[in-house]
Amino acid sequence: MREGLRLYFRMIGMQVRSEMQYRASFVAELVGNLLVTGLDFVMVAVLLMRFQAIGGWTLAEVVFLYGSSAVSFSLAELFVGTFDNFEQWVVRGDFDRVLLRPLPVIFQMLTGAFPLRRFGRLAQGTIALGVAFVLLKPVWNVGHWLFWGVMLAGGALFFMAIFVLGATLSFWSPQMHEVANIFTYGGQFMTSYPMHIYEAWLRSIFTFVIPLAFVNYYPALFLLGKPDPFGLPGWVSFLAPLIAVAAFRGAIAIWRVGVRHYQSTGS
């Protein structure tokens, strides 16, 4: 375990050093990432300043929801970034190299990239949360803070599961990878706004098929002291860690099936 952890940091270190080879580019991309992902925040701000409220939620409340979702998502992006452009690995046959090394495949995937420049999203998500706290001035006890931490971690884990599932698609059809964007980037975009504004079919998909709502919207309802407009019992707000862990384990299991279907390029 300790040896594994040491190797993990050693391999992440390689990735970070690789990235630092292009220092100027790195800085520009970091700033670029901050701005690009910041556009989502700007959108929330512009719209809610203009319209005051959405589905009964105020600017501050939406910014809180948005910031939580963005932070979870950016953590997922940092840790499982390799899965995000995995179709490239399949197309170029780079996955061969992973299979040739005597380390668990998942371990190598987790250390295959550490896109530091994506700290931009984490940074702007954190800023959004700062703004939300200033506006909301929440009166929370330790339990609330802990609950919020679990909500962020659960969200991150859930997004990781989606990244892994999206990557798994590439084993069958690298071109279909873009469908994964619906659930990764689309999921993040969608969970930035309260779930009840969406039409029933969209809401059902993200509540029951890909239960993102449980790691984001329901915990937020609890923290913001809002009742569930769909009348689900209050305890569903506490399902986040369970659902996140289950989703992640499920995703890994499906990924394993995919690995056996890997058809390296060429003949």
Binding site: A24, S25, E29, V31, G32, N33
Partner: peptide, 14 residues
Amino acid sequence: WTTDARGILYLTNT
């Protein structure tokens, strides 16, 4: 002229 094209494009595109 620059090796940072990716960064610049990222910014201009935003």
